[in-house]
Amino acid sequence: MEHEETYLLMMDALDGELAEAQHSELEAHLRACPSCLQEWQALLAVHTLLQQTPALSPAVDFAQRTLARLPNRRVRIWTLTAIYALLLLGGILPLALAVWLVFILRPVLSEPTILSSISQSIGQALQVMGTIVWALLAGLGEMVVQQPAIVGWLLVLLGIISIWGGVSRQLIFQTSPRQTS
């Protein structure tokens, strides 16, 4: 049997998962191979040490001090509920308003001339927006080509803003102040 294979048997032995036939296989190899026996003795020593070392407990007032640092869940629950309700209203109100408007204006809207003029004006608005976006993109492209330094400065500025965003988030969302014992 190869040494490497023996190592795997040793691991199973440590985990208490060695089958009956493998017991004798491992034992026979250990009796014949001094280097594997040495490895096994060292493995067993560490294994036994870890198994026999009790867990460590924190200081006696640990639970009390931790309790004092807990954030207020009730406030959090209420805040979340309020935000949720606001979002829900924010979504539902305009929708309800639109449905109501459509309902009121139904007779007028069903006139074919009005319908066609509405779709026409939407089409025109889209066209105007397309032109504006296109012009903006083209301008941006030109600026990148002609003034790379400005782009560099913008990137630096973005970096600074994001760092400050991170710092202020840390400050705002920190839990209760740390307690020094």
């Binding site: 190592y7 795997l8 691991m11 032995a13 440590l14 060695l18 017991h23 491992l26 034992e27 250990l30 009796r31 026996l37 040495q38 490895e39 096994w40 003795q41 060292a42 493995l43 067993l44 020593a45 560490v46 294994h47 036994t48 040490l49």
Partner: peptide
Amino acid sequence: LFRARRLLAEVGQEAGLDPVRDSAALTAVS
């Protein structure tokens, strides 16, 4: 875990952890 145990065994010997004696090591197999 395999590598960790072998590493610990090696460091343990260097740190002066006594290896389990021959007879005890062999009986531990079964």
